[in-house]
Write a protein that binds this DNA or RNA. Structure first.
Lengths: 343, 343
DNA sequence: TTGTCGGACCGAAACGTTTCGGTTGCATAG
DNA sequence: CTATGCAACCGAAACGTTTCGGTCCGACAA
């Protein structure tokens, strides 16, 4: 039946060579004449031979698999569009190299750690991706302790102790602020993300520094999160402010959309009374009215680059020890949720 | 170092028994005295022994892995909340049985088929889940041809030739229609999903039959899809209808939200002029105003049940050949987007 | 002619389990 | 006291690769 029980032994027999020669021939290794190489490959094709991952795995000490543990509750994953594209990018990078993705979900921090431990202990994966990094993320020392190859996704600048891929949010957020400043805004608020996350902090910092650079005082900074509901809540708090901002930079699109919706309910005109920006560039941002001015991140490219780097690290950890990939920064995409300062 | 090079040979040596005895002892098989079992387990614990998945895999002919290929473009996955919870459910069901999930994305139908073939050919997975089933889905005969254990997710009724898990949409959609009828609506439209999908068809059929059962003529049926944009487009088409419906049943929440947004832009009051319902019960439905009346599906439970069934099928394909798991039907959740028929 | 070199090829070990058949030794039945 | 049976235990094969060391043989140099 379609199911292939044919092994390299069969191929070798058919080609009339030793198993070792068949192996060399098929893997393009030297030590076989061109003639026999042809003959072996022919035999393999005729028999429909596909190398057994299990045999290779045991022999080469590789799982041909990389791991990704999502340390988020599944209901957060519901609303965050990052992952689909991110995973698609990973796939694209690894599948043609014979690798596959093992995806796990960590319920909480402890659970997540345990999953990394287990992945390492039974050697199910050859390496892991660390995304959604926290400040001083414990996973970093964990993978070091476990001797598990790993690459980080957009870590805190400079001193990150693992190879990593980075897409700057600073550039985009800075452009956003500059755009608002050029529209005459002087009081520009920020709805920030949860404290512990590296990407919350980067966006917060970029917002603050861009304002300082423009000679403006960083306007009110509101605690928030990455959710729609967080945006709604922020709108309520802004509405109660004495000295209201005329623009608000939200930590992500979902939050911005929530803020817009609630603001409109409160009778605040967007962008007439208040300009709003997001971050991520998710589809939803183009659906709402006014369409959301945002920063277009490219999670697909991030996933692809990170996975490719991880495979390189697995191949030669030493050589890639401090490798860093800087992706083109996410760029601003101007839409309709920002406008001139009201007067 | 944390990295365990310790094998069952070491454990056996330490316990002073043969490898085979150590294996039996650790796996709870008979043939070892209680005393030596203790001794072996003690030794294993002291050495921090973790069985090598690779060795087991080769020996038992199992990968300890199941596969899921998402046959959707990554941008669709962006907006559809089903997957996060679904995958979470799978994880929950398999991780404690020592299994892991291999996730792949199929770019198009052909690509998807190739991925199943490859998964089967190199035996990377022990079985696969078939979700997002199409009418006459080619994957069904494919897995049969490949001899790959598989279970279907909510297939077309009755005659599905593989074990499957099913959560009825019929009950929920019927309740939705009955609810609308009880509010006095007599002209109830449906924005349907893409033709080829089994779940589109089931919802369409349920809507139609519920109306017939209520003695009403099935109102206009509009082609649509599962997207926000599709909902907006449907709103435009409804607005142009001569004989406008007073209620519309959308194929899913995202579509319904799009419809509501666009309808409101057109000056149509929801639910004053038009009642709208969705399907899925995603978080977004509770964010919009009016909050969306919908049907609360439980993708997490679906994933969990399907994965558990697949593991059973892998263990004993014969015994489970025609096994079916019916989950409790998704139930209506009434919110604010439906109201009495306008008069 | 003989010795050396290197390319082509082969056999066997190694990876880490599980499993199967066989051996031991003790208890019990005859 | 011997035969039988059974529990406990062991050795070795098997899973399917890759890799390492070695053999063979022809070509070339001395």
């Amino acid at each position: 039946m379609g199911s292939s029980r044919v092994t390299i032994v069969d191929v070798a027999a058919r080609a009339g060579v030793a198993i070792s020669s068949a192996s060399s021939a098929l893997n393009g290794r030297p030590g076989v004449s061109e003639a026999t190489r042809q003959r072996v490959q022919e035999a393999a094709r005729e028999l429909g031979y596909v190398p057994s991952l299990r045999g290779r795995s045991l022999s080469t000490q590789r799982a041909f698999t990389i791991g990704l543990v999502l340390q988020r509750s599944w209901d957060v994953l519901e609303s965050d569009p990052f992952f689909g594209a991110f995973i698609g990018g990973i796939e694209q990078a690894i599948s043609h190299r014979g690798y596959a993705l093992v995806l796990q979900m960590g319920f909480d921090q402890q659970d997540t750690e345990n999953r990394y431990r287990e992945l390492a202990a039974n050697r199910r994966v050859d390496g892991v991706l660390l995304n959604e990094l926290r400040v001083d993320d414990p996973r970093v020392s964990l993978v070091k302790e476990l001797g598990l190859p790993a690459v980080g996704i957009s870590p805190d600048l400079d001193s990150f102790p693992l190879p990593y891929v980075r897409q700057s949010a600073t550039v985009g957020v800075t452009q956003l602020v500059e755009h608002l400043v050029s529209l005459g805004h002087t009081r520009i608020a920020h709805v920030a993300g949860p404290e512990g996350y590296v990407h919350s902090r980067e966006r917060d910092r970029a917002w603050r520094e861009a304002l300082v650079a423009a000679g403006l005082e960083p306007g009110p900074r509101l605690d928030g999160d990455f959710t729609y509901e967080g945006g709604r809540s922020a709108a309520d708090r802004i509405a109660e402010l004495d000295d209201k901002p005329t623009a608000v930079v939200c930590v992500n699109d979902l939050c911005a959309v929530g803020l817009i919706m609630r603001a409109q309910e409160l009778g605040i005109k967007i962008p007439g009374d208040l300009s709003v920006t997001g971050y991520d560039g998710i589809a939803l941002g183009t659906y709402v009215r006014p369409a959301l001015t945002s920063v277009q991140a490219t999670p697909r490219q991030v996933g692809s680059a990170a996975a490719a780097l991880l495979l390189d690290v697995i191949d030669d950890a030493q050589a890639r020890e401090n490798e860093v990939i800087q992706l083109p920064a996410a760029e601003v995409v101007l839409r309709k949720s920002t406008g001139p300062v009201p007067r």
